[in-house]
């Protein structure tokens, strides 16, 4: 499973989304709706929506963390994730073209790092593992990127 600190990271990201996006949008919509439907019902609805968003932002990361697991097996990298939309991804190790490690500002503050694995299948990453200790991420990156062999192209 991922480092439990990823829950803090995802919660902080959700709070930022709430403050930067949902709060102004909700206030804007509420200002327009209040003129038509009255202040009291609008405030109740907007409040309910914001509390729901807050609850989702605090609760969802725990569910996502529980569902997110990965394993580097003998021949492939296996990643399982998703609460509502579940995904299991398998990438044969010899098909890995390159591996990136990424750190945003909050990840740097928490000392976490993400690992992103690419194959020749396109621009989108085939598998990613967030919430790794920086040292572990670098170690994993080196291990995964060192594979040779037939890349299937």
């Amino acid at each position: 499973m991922l480092d439990p600190r990823i829950v803090q990271l995802w919660r902080l990201q959700a709070l930022l989304r709430l403050l930067i996006f949902w709060l102004p949008v909700t206030l804007g919509v509420a200002a327009v709706a209040a003129a038509r439907f009255g202040i009291a019902p609008t405030v109740i609805l907007a409040g309910f929506f914001l509390i729901f968003q807050l609850g989702l932002g605090l609760g969802w990361p725990v569910l996502a963390w529980r569902r997110y697991r990965y394993s580097i097996r003998e021949h492939d990298l296996l990643v399982e994730k998703g609460v509502l939309f579940r995904n299991t991804v398998s990438v044969p190790l010899q098909r890995i073209q390159h591996v990136d490690t990424r750190q945003g500002p909050i990840e740097r503050w928490l000392g976490l790092s993400s690992l992103v694995v690419y194959t020749a299948a396109g621009l989108n990453a085939d598998a990613s593992i967030p919430g790794l200790e920086e040292g572990d991420a670098l170690h994993l990156r080196d291990q995964l990127a060192r594979r040779g062999g037939d890349d299937g192209v």
Binding site: Y70, S71, P92, G149
Partner: peptide, 24 residues
Amino acid sequence: TTQRTNQTAPNIAITSESTPTTTA
């Protein structure tokens, strides 16, 4: 896929013992 990629190049196993954080 494993069988086919194995035919083309030898593989190195990474186990949960060699890298403590690799296994869920």
